[in-house]
Amino acid sequence: MPDADQPHTAAALFASIAYLDSLDSATLHSVARTAVKRTYEPDQVVFLEGESSSGLCVVENGWLKAIKTAPDGREQILNFLGPGEVFNAVAVFASDANPATVIALEPSTVWMIQRETMLRLLEDHPPLARAVIQDLANRVTHLIQLVEDLSLRSVEARLARLLLQQAQTDILPRHRWATQSEMAARLGTVPDVINRALRSLAQDGLIKVERHQIQILDKAALEARAGLET
């Protein structure tokens, strides 16, 4: 549903993200007037992989996940999307179908900027084009890292890295309670394998699985197991 009452909200949101902050105020308000606001409940699908692209999406609030799904239902999380993040750029600029499925994890508000609007802006605003290229380059880097992890690192090493990331950087403040299923989805495996890897790391004294907590006992050794330089 278009939300004609809140163009200022959208303009303020767009101005606050690096992706669009090169645009002047008048342009941002112009984009905001044509943007469409959508709200999603937890587990609601924003769009499905393979569907035709609907536009560039900007998260106002909430958390979502971008996933690829196997025929047997197993999912691989590509990334999590939080407030101020932009997604679906690949489909918009490649004029292609959505490359992944996006699902809301909690009540979320997403603004969608029509593809035609974005293409027109790119032609008129070279700084925006540079920001888009920068963003796409970052996404390629992230996906190269993901391919490296999935193809070249053992589940144990990937799990070690995930534990360190989640404990240290707190990049997912809404997800500090991690389940084995969630870890499996992020690492491209199944909960049983995660369970075995946790036991292996615990037997080696790197971690301890306590009630409600996975405790990292030896950070340096876990970093070495993760293949991270110390």
């Binding site: 991690a178 389940t179 299923s181 409600h212 405790q215 950070k219």
Partner: peptide
């Protein structure tokens, strides 16, 4: 059916 999950907090001791 994998309907039950235990959430854990990940902490550095």
């Amino acid at each position: 059916t994998q309907a039950i999950e235990r959430p854990f907090q990940i902490v550095i001791v």
